[in-house]
Each structure stands twice: as C-alpha cells, then as structure tokens.
C-alpha cells in the first residue's frame, strides 16, 4: 500500500514536467505572437528617443528571434529562474511571491470559508430534507452559484463600506495608520472580510449543494441502513459512514476549485484593490510585461497541478478502495 502510494505520487510528479513545459510554450507563443510592442508600452506618453528604444530592446533581449528567446526562457525556467520584469526590473519570482501572499490569503480564506460553511450547510440540509433550512440552503446555493462575483463584490462594498461604513472598501491594510502586533492582523482581517465573502460565495454554494446531494446519496445506501440496523449511534453513522463517503466528490470539487479561485480572485482583487496576483496580471497586460505574464501562468499552473495532485491523494486517503495505476 505505502509503496504503491509512493509510486503513484512519483508517476503523477513525472507528469508535471511536460505539463509545465506545455503551459510555457502555449503562453509564450500567445504572448509573443500578439500585436503590440512591449518596448513601446514601456515608454511614456511622449515620443521616445530612438537610442532609448533600441537600448531597451537589447536590454530586454527582444532583439533576438522568437525560438532563441523561447529556448533561452526554457533554459532559465529549468534553473528555477523566471527572469526579470521588463517594467520593474526586478526578478519575476520576487514580484510574484510578494503578490502571491495576498492572493493566497484571500483565496485561502475564501476556500476555507466555502469548505467549512458549505459542507456544514450541506450536511444540515441533508439531515433535514425538505425542512425550511433545506429549502433556504438550496435557494441560497442557487443564488450564490449564479451571481457574478464582481457584481456581488460591488454590492457588498456599496452596502457595508460606503453605506454602513462598517468595513474598509479598499486595499489590504489601513492607509494612514501603521499598526503593529495584534492590531496589524485585525486590520488585515477587517479588510479581508468583504473580498473573501464575495469570492467564497460561489464555491460555498457548490460545496453546499454537492455535500447535500452526496450526503443524501450516501445516507440512502445499503451500508448506512446496515449500520443503523446494527444499532450504531446516529451521529457515528452520519459522520463516519455517511460523511466519509459523501465527501469524496466534495473533495474533488474543492481541489478543482483552486484553479477557479485564482480566476475569481482576479475579479475580486480588481473590485477591492487587493494587491494580489490577479491584479498584477491585469496591470502587466497593459504594460506588456512578458516575463511577469509568463511567470504568473507558470506559477498558477503549478499551483493547480499541485492542488490536483493533493486532491487525488486526499481521495486516496478518504477512499481506501482506490487502486493506483
């Protein structure tokens, strides 16, 4: 079992390299073949001297042919180097990591919120099928699943920040004050609430619905009936037998959520001015910062791949019947 699990992990890891390679090649080509000149995007709103433009082009390595640039980039990535940002002239890896913290905080909070609340709502409504709670959950989940995240974010901001003044509308930290210690974290927490709420809604809805339906499914199965017949305590039946089986699809979807969370966070970050990767991407498109764009795709794709891998492992732990290839 252990050895097989180990081999399975190795097998999955071996798949990562061609995937990352593919991601790089695809995004590299899209970025470089698109119309527009990154050098001209870097100069201000005035005709730039030719010396400056030529100089920049050389500096950025954009005077070489496309295949040479691609090979050069691949070689660097293989050494763990994502290159230098055109606009900021600092290592891309540093820039992305600075922003990744903010995105992970936002997306992680939203993910947790969705996992805990969603699963709880799902269990609750599956246990009280057709009750008021169940109907409320169903309706809320449908709404949460259909509402555009950016629209929701704006509504939340208008109500709770601009209207009621309870929570800060923008950014990750207070602008004026410089808090330390506990207040520093509380300050970030206050800024986190609205964007995390907006971002989590959709995933919360997915988790709630999925938990509900797979709980109902599991609770209707024979082994539950058997367990109940054996006189096991109801809570144990629900949690151990019901939930454990019901969680399988939920875990899968939560693993998949990771990719969607990044996408959603781009929208939420824009609405709330959250200094994360999504915003970095949007800013970097207009400045044509190729290395940052590529870097973001590589890092996010890696994150998704790792999340998928972890999902499968979680699956393995939850469902010991799985046999690995």
């Amino acid at each position: 079992m252990e050895a097989r699990l180990g081999r399975y992990i190795l097998y999955r890891l071996a798949q990562v390299i061609p995937l990352v390679f593919g991601v790089i090649v695809v995004t590299f080509l899209i970025i470089h073949l698109a119309p527009g000149d990154p050098v001209l995007a870097l100069v201000g709103n005035f005709p730039a001297p030719e010396e400056y433009v030529t100089r920049l082009r050389q500096d950025l390595g954009l005077d070489k042919s496309l295949p040479v640039q691609l090979l050069h980039y691949l070689r660097k990535v293989a050494q763990g180097d994502l290159g230098y940002s055109f606009a900021q002239r600092r290592p891309v890896l540093n820039i992305i990591f600075e922003r990744m913290g903010a995105t992970l905080l936002l997306a992680g909070t939203a993910w947790l919120l969705a996992a805990v609340l969603g699963v709880a709502m799902g269990i609750l409504s599956s246990l009280r099928q057709y009750s008021l709670v169940d109907h409320a959950t169903t309706v809320a989940a449908l709404i949460g699943f259909s509402v555009p995240v950016f629209w929701l974010g704006q509504l939340l901001m208008l109500i709770f920040s601009v209207g009621l003044g309870w929570l800060p509308p923008q950014g990750m930290q207070s602008i004026r004050e410089e808090y330390t210690g506990l207040r520093y974290y509380l300050d970030i927490g206050a800024h986190l609430i609205l964007p995390a709420l907006a971002l989590s809604t959709r995933f919360l809805a997915i988790n709630a619905r999925l938990t509900r339906s797979s709980m109902l499914d599991a609770l209707g199965r024979e082994f539950i009936t058997t367990a109940r017949a054996k006189g096991l305590p109801e809570l144990r039946v629900i949690l151990h037998h019901g939930l454990r089986n019901a969680l399988l699809p939920v875990v899968t979807v939560m693993g998949l959520n990771v990719g969607f969370l990044f996408a959603g966070s781009a929208l939420v970050e824009t609405v709330f001015g959250w200094p994360g990767v999504g915003r970095l991407l949007f800013d970097s498109i207009s400045t044509r910062d190729y290395p940052i764009l590529l870097g973001i795709f590589v890092v996010v794709a890696l994150a998704v791949i790792i999340a998928n891998l972890l999902t499968d492992l979680a699956y393995a732990v939850l469902d010991p019947r799985i046999r690995y290839k």
Partner: peptide
C-alpha cells in the same frame, strides 16, 4: 491546468 480566466483575459 492553464488558468482559464487569466488566459481569456
């Protein structure tokens, strides 16, 4: 694994 929304953007 390609970030869908990012790529569309």
């Amino acid at each position: 694994v390609l970030p869908r929304f990012f790529l569309a953007l």
